[in-house]
Nucleic acid binder design. Structure first.
Lengths: 205, 205
DNA sequence: CGAGATATCTTGACACTGTCAAGCTGAAGT
DNA sequence: ACTTCAGCTTGACAGTGTCAAGATATCTCG
């Protein structure tokens, strides 16, 4: 109720982003409500708009936070080994773990219909996260196969991981319907990485 | 204004689905409006609800139509060749072309937050579409590498294609920002297929 | 110390929304 | 001719996002 200090205002922005993630996870993005976020944060319905401009601004801030987390966690994973192939696998595991630990953040990160895709920070964070992956693929190319098209191979890796995160619930259901024991997502990441790297090592584009 | 015959009612359902796809493409799914669909179809705001139950029902019908189209077009593509490797590439091209020709259908097809993921037809169409892909991968395993885990390899293919369709706008932008000439999506499909198949041929799980 | 500026809210209004219920109309069935 | 039914329309309601105006506490400056 009382006006906030700068620190309190920053705290409120963080509370609003946490409430946003909570509402997305509980209700689905399709039923997202800015007023519900305000209620959970204990402020009036107009407060989020003051801090973030509008609903798109708030969701964009959440997407930036998500891609920043993705970048930091994939960079940390990459630093855990000097073996380029193992590095790619660890990056994949980190990617999927961020997707599971921050589902709302990652869900909005690739939704041009609800976030501002032109936002500079969103693009910068996305470029940084992609860079970690591309560096790992480049290392593989340098040590095992200089013929590999690093750019395209990096695109394939990201597409595969992004597709896995999004499709995993559906693929799991397909497996269950076929009576096949579903794989854990970590297991799939390792299998995917193995198959992808095998292709990279033998590629002769 | 006048009550419809059964044929006219079916026509209206089709008109509503076409208007739905149009609104999604123009406004984005995040700003989708059922009343706008009704306006474009020239009926009252309650008519879509009568035919489809509610907004989720309408979007689910669109998703089913999309997956059915995907199944039919990937099956047709698969029938165009007897070479298993070329078949997989053609399936990938067909997948991406459906994604580009029916963006609204494919956008809602994987959105559990706006469609009814438990709808039997949605699952049946999804299973059928996946089956075309899995058959192609199985043929590759039988002719080139019996050690290949067909299920996981199929999952990888679908994840990669789905990820490509969704990420292609963002990846294209990353390429342009880096001064790299962006690849066409068909070119990427061919490169992806080549890399994936190379991995499949040499896999020894 | 008081006045003015500023940041950070709140309140209220507006137009739009999805859903539901009641009612209308024409065709089909008895 | 009456009843039933499918396929709508109209109207109401509660919730929504955004905007404008106003309130309040803090900060700055003379």
């Amino acid at each position: 109720m009382t006006p906030a200090t700068e620190t309190e205002a920053a705290d409120l922005r963080q509370v609003l982003q946490e409430a946003t993630a909570e509402v997305i996870v509980e209700r689905g993005l399709g039923a997202f409500s800015l007023r519900e976020v305000a209620r959970r944060a204990g402020v009036s319905h107009a407060a989020p708009g003051y801090h973030f401009g509008d609903m798109e601004g708030l969701l964009t801030a959440l997407a930036i936070e998500g891609l920043d987390t993705l970048h930091r966690q994939t960079a940390a994973a990459a630093a855990m080994t000097t073996d380029p192939i193992e590095r790619l696998r660890l990056i994949g595991v980190a990617y999927v773990q961020v997707g599971m630990n921050f589902p709302a953040h990652m869900e909005v990160a690739f939704r041009p219909d609800v976030v501002d895709g032109d936002h500079p920070s969103l693009q910068t964070c996305g470029t940084s996260a992609f860079g970690v992956l591309e560096d790992a693929v480049r290392d593989i190319a340098e040590t095992h196969n200089p013929k590999l098209d690093v750019r395209k191979a990096s695109h394939l890796c990201w597409s595969a991981m992004q597709g896995l995160v999004e499709l995993h619930p559906k693929l799991t259901r397909l497996d269950e319907m076929s009576g096949v024991p579903a794989s854990s997502i970590d297991d799939l990441v390792s299998s995917f990485t193995s198959l992808l790297v095998t292709g990279f090592l033998h590629a002769d584009d």
